[in-house]
């Protein structure tokens, strides 16, 4: 068993040496298809990162007409922090609210001259846990908060959140559809290229069967070859995507106003890189497998 695997490996190396052009074509096809897929993944990843970043802004603000007693306030905060949706609670007193307002007005701050700091209500800013940073999460939390009669008004940027969610949903759909389509197209192209390489060796496949080669024995070198070419293509796609990323994407994307909120454009993380190379292996293996069924008949 081990011996025949070595034999198969030796044969696939010889095959590739004998037809370097076809071998190169197969590797090249995988490399090109997968780099497109990789670049697409980088784009999708960064957009996802961006929406995650945006969603950090989502918080529920509770306004209180009457400034709370310190003791009661401590109790409320403790209770709210006990809710499963809540990440953190921060209190903004009337004074702080006034100061912030003035800061935001900066140059026009003199407009506030003569006003008492108690024109603005005190409030609680409630940050949500990541899973609850959506309309449903905010609404359920507000339902619970209503039990406290001292809380007079609740805000969470309904309209903004609505638009944001529509956008995120659409993005998710585009990524899924386009990614699936790309993967399918890649498999199609790769399996056809491999079919071409098998077509060039059809006489060899035929003779092997006629002199008593078992289907497994005949197929193994070609499967190995496909896997090897696929892996090579995957590695090249990774390298290609990285070069393209460094040269163009890093600055190109950052220059778009759309991405300006992000701290930095990111490349594929390690797990995705491994996945990319393994997709190459799988593509090559699977592409060979489905093509071989057409050519190896006993």
């Amino acid at each position: 068993m081990f011996g025949s695997l070595i034999y198969a490996a030796r044969r696939s190396v010889r095959n590739m040496r004998q037809s370097p052009f076809l071998c190169g074509a197969a590797v090249g096809t995988v490399a090109v298809s997968l780099s497109i897929l990789a670049l697409f993944a980088i784009l999708a990843l960064n957009v996802q990162e961006l929406t995650r970043h945006w969603s950090e802004e989502i918080q529920v603000t509770v306004y209180m007409d009457v400034p709370p007693q310190e003791e009661a306030l401590g109790e409320w905060i403790e209770k709210i922090e006990g809710y499963p949706e809540v990440e953190k609670v921060s209190y903004v007193s009337r004074g702080e609210a006034f100061d912030r307002f003035r800061e935001r007005l900066s140059e026009d701050a003199d407009l506030l001259e003569g006003l008492e700091p108690d024109i603005l209500p005190a409030s609680l800013g409630i940050g949500l846990k990541e899973n609850f940073r959506n309309r449903a999460g905010a609404e359920t939390l507000i339902e619970k908060l209503r039990e406290n009669p001292s809380f007079s008004d609740f805000r969470y940027g309904q309209e903004w959140l609505e638009r944001f969610e529509t956008f995120a949903d659409m993005l998710q759909m585009i990524v899924t559809v386009l990614g699936g389509f790309l993967l399918f197209a890649t498999l199609f192209i790769v399996s056809n290229t491999i079919k071409l390489t098998l077509y060039a060796r059809r006489e060899e496949l035929e003779v092997m069967a006629l002199v008593g080669g078992t289907p497994l024995f005949i197929k193994t070198p070609f499967l190995l070859e496909g896997a090897l070419q696929g892996t090579l293509g995957g590695l090249m796609a990774l390298a290609g995507a990285f070069v393209f990323f460094e040269l163009f994407l890093l600055e190109g994307l950052a220059a778009l106003p759309f991405f300006s909120g992000l701290y930095g454009i990111i490349f594929l993380p390690g797990s995705h890189q491994l996945l990319l190379v393994l997709s190459g292996t799988t593509l090559g293996l699977f592409g060979s497998f489905i093509s071989l069924r057409k050519f190896v008949r006993i």
């Binding site: 006629l210 002199v211 008593g212 006993i298």
Partner: peptide, 22 residues
Amino acid sequence: SARIPILRRCLGIVFQDFKLLT
């Protein structure tokens, strides 16, 4: 059909068109 290869191993076949690998 899995046994056919085993059968062929005890046969020597000279094909009309040779079927040599060029």
